[in-house]
């Protein structure tokens, strides 16, 4: 493989990551829409579409390994291959979380009391899509500053997540009284999945920062989420 074809390979890899990102954004968008509109067919399309994301992830992993083995890159090229592999895995995980939300959309029985929570979930998912959009932009533009700012864009999601859990445990008057534990569990899980989506993207931001600066930030490898994001 010549140096020129190596760079061609890197370019192709970059495009594959962006294609995977586009599929994942669509999955998150449609899964939350399915949840908010109780649309089972939309939920089914998200679940079916996850195979494409998984297939693309495997292809990206294969291409990363092949390029590493054949070219033995160093410095920035090595970091790029490493980052592509990890970003792809983070995106794949986000796709799985979207599938989880789609499955809840199929099971959730809407009650009047669930409506305020669904409204909040709608706001959470809009913010999660914003984190995802900025994360992808940070990767496409190799923008370390934007990558590091993802933690801040993620903050309102953590706040809304806490609000949902608090309100489920301590409803505000009759309007929000929890009538059954079933829908309350689904709402709590859905909010957790959306919160995890944003966290995956924040982690992705740390990988992008490493790609650009070459420095590994220990915060992101802490096992306790409380320490990592100040939850």
């Amino acid at each position: 493989m010549t140096r020129q074809s190596f760079h061609e390979g890197l370019k192709q890899l970059n495009e594959e990551i962006l294609r995977e990102a586009s599929l994942v954004v669509e999955a998150v968008d449609l899964s939350t829409q399915a949840l908010l509109k109780s649309d089972r067919s939309l939920a089914n399309s998200v679940i079916a579409g996850d195979d494409d994301i998984n297939e693309l992830t495997l292809r990206i992993e294969g291409n990363c390994l092949a390029l590493q083995a054949q070219q033995q890159p160093v410095a920035r090229d090595l970091r790029l291959l490493h980052t592509c592999l990890l970003v792809s895995l983070h995106l794949e995980r986000v796709g799985d979380l979207a599938v989880n939300i789609a499955k809840i959309a199929k099971r959730l029985e809407r009650t009047e009391a669930a409506e305020p929570y669904l409204e909040l979930l709608g706001k959470m998912s809009a913010q999660a899509l914003e984190v995802l959009r900025q994360g992808i932009k940070a990767f496409a533009d190799r923008d370390a500053r934007l990558a590091n700012s993802l933690v801040e864009i993620d903050e309102p999601i953590d706040e809304m997540y806490k609000e949902i859990l608090t309100r489920l445990l301590h409803p505000k008057g009759e309007l929000e009284a929890v009538e059954s534990t079933e829908w309350a569990t689904h709402i709590a899980l859905a909010s957790r999945y959306i919160e995890r989506i944003a966290d995956q993207v924040v982690d992705m931001g740390a990988r992008i920062d490493f790609l650009v600066t070459g420095k590994l930030d220990g915060r992101y490898f802490d096992n306790e989420p409380d320490k990592r994001f100040g939850e």
Binding site: E15, L18, R19, S22, R133, A140
Partner: peptide, 20 residues
């Protein structure tokens, strides 16, 4: 739209694999 730019690919700027 979300910052479409000249000399950048559709995927890089608008992030739509379907449009591409």
């Amino acid at each position: 739209l979300d910052q479409p730019r000249r000399r950048r690919s559709l995927l890089e700027t608008l992030g739509s694999h379907e449009l591409e």
